[in-house]
Every structure is written in structure tokens, then in C-alpha cells.
Write a protein that binds this DNA or RNA. Structure first.
Lengths: 157, 157
DNA sequence: CTTGACCTTGACGCCGGTGTGAAGGGGTAA
DNA sequence: TTACCCCTTCACACCGGCGTCAAGGTCAAG
């Protein structure tokens, strides 16, 4: 199939596909007239890329997964390089979450300090019921237990 | 004082100060030779900007705080516009945290699925002691209680 | 006078993942 | 042939907060 069809079936723009090729993630065969030619396996590759992008991976992060698939593995994540990237991303995400939690606390503190009467939680009624230790909350709570260590380095600055 | 001194005292680059001025956040008087002239109150403004940037505010977000200070208020956060921005940022931060938690779960799930024996928490030993309900963890737990509602809209895409 | 530290404005670079447009060739149906 | 859609490559635009040159003006010390 040509780029337009792949783009539509994969739900991405043709521009994006050309960009993936330019980054070496999605090499395309060429027809005699210069048109790119793709097959079903390419659709799979694009799906892999998109799902990784959706969880915050960069294209560079996605590279080992794509290579893994092209090497014949069933899952893009089943190669050691992919696992390494996943672990690194996990640590990055943890660091981001901890940074955001700190920031949230700072903003909230400043808000309550300079505006003591302010209703800090205008959406309280819409939020989840106040029952404690719901699975979702457990997930958030447990988050800080593992993953990246609580290093003293700060982000942004 | 001139821009170099303010930059050093505030711990920012002169380039940053010119940028703030260009954005209308830090108007400067001019000496006869065209040099920018600042005083102590400007140092305060820069400090306000930096502390807001440090918690994830944009310069646009910082504007009402700076205006508030220039209007003579003691705290940049004590004006209604500032409070509105703070609340909005709080909601944004909550949304980002929830998105990151979802992503973390997805990455972790995919990792355990394709690599069941993988040690998911290589840094467990370095992390905080496993004693439950430490203040820090409490803060993280309480995070999802208030703030932005659990709206169905997703980020990214 | 020269040197050198400081100042000015203007403008391009960066990062990532595209969107968008230009300018043109290919292939097919009416 | 015309019309029309799909394809090609090239290249600028975007977002935010600056970094970093370029080319030059200002001012005090030696």
C-alpha cells in the first residue's frame, strides 16, 4: 500500500510517516515511480510507535521497540534494549510525578497562605467519594515506594 | 542598579531580564545613555517571577502576580486574578499528575507482561523506608481528593 | 589614547513532532 | 485532453524561555 492508505489505516498523517522514515524508524520500499510502498508489518510498526508516543516516549525511545519488532519478535518490548528504555522511562515518570507533587504542594500552600478563606477544592463534590484506600488511590500512594530513588537533584532551574 | 547587577543579585541572566521586559513583566527606566535602571522593588519582581517559574508557571501565568506586586500589594498572590491563576494551575497540575500516573501504570504493566521476571524496582533499597503514612506520602495520597474533577477528557492526542 | 568591562538592539538556534504550503510529477477515469 | 487526486521533496512555522553570537555604543581607569 502507499503512504496515504497506511496513514489512514494507522490514523496518522502522511507527514508523520515520512518523518518516522526520516528518523530511521520506518524504512519504506520504493515503487518504480518513487512512491513509498508499505505492507501489513509496517502498519504494526506504526501502531507500536503511536502507542509508545501516547505514553510519553519520544521517537528515540521507540527505536529499540521498533527494531525489536523488525527483528522478528512478537512484542516490541521483549528485547533487552526495550526493557532498559522502559525502566528508564519509568524512572523519569516517577521523577516527574514527584516534582509535580512538590509543585502542587507549593502552589496549594501559597494559595492557602495568601487567601486563607479561599475554597481550595471547588470540585470536591464531583471528585471520587472520600472513601479511603480505593484501588486508584492505592496506586498513587504506592507510586513513591519504588522506581527511581529520591535523588536530591531538582528538575527545572 | 543596572542590568548586570540585578542579574547577579537575582541569580538570572541579563538575557532573561531583557526577555521579561519584552514580555511586559519587568519595565525598566532608562538612563540618559539608554542603559536600563532598576531598583530594589525590581529585585522583588524578579524573585516573584523566578519562584513562579520554578513551580511550573509560565511567564503569562506570572503576569497577574507581578501586576499585583506593582499595584502595591505585599504578596503577588493576594489579588483575585492571581488566585484564579493559582487555582487553574492547581487543576492543571492535578491533570498532569493523573495522566502521568496512568502512563506509569501502562508502562509498568507492559514491562511486567513482556518481562515477568524483571525487577521492576531496582532502586527499592534506596527509596524511603517502607513505613506507611509518612507525611510526605500522606500529601501524595490526598492529592487526588480535591482539585480538578476527574474529567473524561484526556491530554495528548 | 587605548583597553576592557559593561551596555544596547537584532536575530538565529534549540527542543519534538508534526502542520502547512509550495512547486511539481504520476496515474486514471470521463 | 482535461480534471482530479495522490505522490514527491524542500522548507518554514509553532511552542517557551531563554543561549548565543553579531555589531556596535558608553564610560572609567591606566
Amino acid at each position: 500500500m502507499r503512504i496515504g492508505e497506511l496513514a489512514e489505516r494507522a490514523g496518522v498523517s502522511a507527514r508523520a510517516l515520512r518523518y518516522y522514515e526520516q528518523q530511521g524508524l520506518l524504512p519504506a520500499r520504493r515503487a518504480a515511480n518513487g512512491y513509498r510502498e508499505y505492507d501489513e508489518s509496517d502498519l504494526r510498526l506504526v501502531a507500536e510507535i503511536r502507542s509508545l508516543l501516547a505514553v510519553g516516549f519520544t521517537l528515540e525511545d521507540a527505536r529499540p521497540f521498533v527494531d525489536c519488532l523488525r527483528a522478528g519478535h512478537e512484542a516490541g518490548a521483549s528485547c533487552p534494549e526495550s526493557v532498559a528504555v522502559s525502566r528508564r522511562k519509568l524512572a523519569e515518570i516517577d521523577a516527574e510525578i514527584r516534582a509535580l507533587i512538590r509543585r502542587r504542594a507549593e502552589v496549594a500552600a501559597q494559595l492557602t497562605y495568601t487567601c486563607p478563606g479561599c475554597d481550595l477544592f471547588p470540585a470536591e463534590a464531583d471528585a471520587a467519594p472520600p472513601r479511603a484506600d480505593t484501588p486508584r488511590r492505592r496506586a498513587a500512594t504506592g507510586l513513591l515506594r519504588g522506581g527511581a530513588k529520591l535523588s536530591p537533584r531538582d528538575d527545572r532551574r
